[in-house]
Nucleic acid binder design. Structure first.
Length: 315
DNA sequence: AAGACGAAAGTGGTTGA
DNA sequence: TCAACAACTTTCGTCTT
């Protein structure tokens, strides 16, 4: 029961929260397994905990000061995060005295190069901001790391082709993530990405279409079974449910019951039927909620499916 | 009482003139 | 540009478990 507490680095006791399962006050933050665990009943309250502690240890104040590496804050609103030097355009030194002629031409040359470097940095800055944006979205949706990598590649391509100018970095970043999801067969909706990125569905859709057109991508439409596996995961049902739901969908496709219908509705209905058949029943409302369709739609699809399908199939 | 069902009216997107 | 249309949603009353 308390095995979590015995592992690795000492877990840290939380003061305020209480266990939602047994009401116990002894909650532990366990960084080894990245969980918040109740010490009384073993219930895991939170997963994917982020470790905010420093990775070094210090035994006294002096060591702490020596080892801390953080200093003044950086800002993403300035391209180089506000950390680079600037050469003033006044031809004066720090005491306010004018430069001698020879130094003046030297300063002029330095200034020229500084400007050139800054121009190339504009792209870097754009990229840096976009990458942090992509990371944010991918984390919000708990997408795998590979998605982040691919989305970054897409974004870099967009920069290279100068597609960003005049458009918002955030919009293009979100669109890159969406394209990646679609390419990798992850059924994420525009709505989900829009929520995770604070970009309106309209703008996201526009950026997405723009990128697809300009980068000449071919994006296959979302398959119904991609939704099924997503729903099955979110419903936390056994694999059998997903398997049967997929069978239902294959049969439905053969009977031309899928064309012209929203894939989400079909997937939701198939998942519903499968969950009932397997005996791990989920309510229509539960499924409707995660599928982002209404119960009525599930009912309509499910009625059609049952009428035409069940007696044909050997389940 | 919760969940399922279904009718009816409303909404947003696509299609074709 | 506009009307027609199908799919889907919202709402709400009723039935079933």
């Amino acid at each position: 029961m308390n095995e979590k507490s015995d592992m690795g680095a000492a877990p840290e006791l939380l003061g305020v929260q209480r266990c939602s399962e047994c009401g116990g006050a002894r909650l532990m933050r366990d960084y080894e397994s990245a969980e918040v665990v109740c010490m009384d009943c073993g219930f895991v309250l939170d997963i994917r905990l982020m470790d905010h502690r420093p990775e070094w240890r210090a035994f006294d104040n002096e060591q702490r000061e020596k080892r801390a590496r953080t200093g003044a804050s950086v800002t993403f609103t300035i391209h180089d995060k506000g950390l680079s030097t600037m050469i003033d355009w006044h031809d004066r030194d720090i005491y306010g005295k004018k430069f001698p002629i020879g130094q003046k031409t030297q300063i002029y040359r330095l200034r020229k190069w500084q400007r050139r470097i800054r121009v190339s940095n504009a792209m870097e800055r754009n990229l840096a901001f976009a990458l942090s944006e992509i990371t944010k979205i991918a984390n919000n949706l708990s997408l795998p790391k590979s998605i982040f990598e691919t989305a970054s590649v897409i974004y870099r391509k967009a920069i290279k082709k100068k597609l960003i100018r005049g458009r918002s970095i955030q919009g293009i970043s979100a669109a890159s993530v969406y394209i990646t999801c679609r390419q990798c067969g992850l059924a994420r909706t525009l709505e989900e990405i829009s929520k995770a990125s604070n970009i309106s569905i309209k703008e996201l859709g526009r950026s997405y279409r723009y990128l697809v057109k300009e980068l000449k991508y071919f994006i296959p439409p979302v398959k119904v079974n991609q939704y099924v596996s997503k729903f099955s995961n979110q419903l936390t049902v056994q694999g059998k449910v997903e398997e049967i739901a997929n069978k239902i969908i294959v049969a439905a496709r053969d009977l031309k019951l899928t064309s012209g219908r929203g894939p989400k509705g079909i997937a939701a209905a198939a998942s519903y039927i499968a969950s009932v058949l397997v005996g791990e029943r989920r309510t229509q409302r539960e499924i409707a909620e995660i599928a982002k369709v209404t119960e009525v739609t599930i009912r309509n699809r499910y009625k059609e499916l049952l009428e035409r399908l069940l007696f044909i199939m050997d389940l």
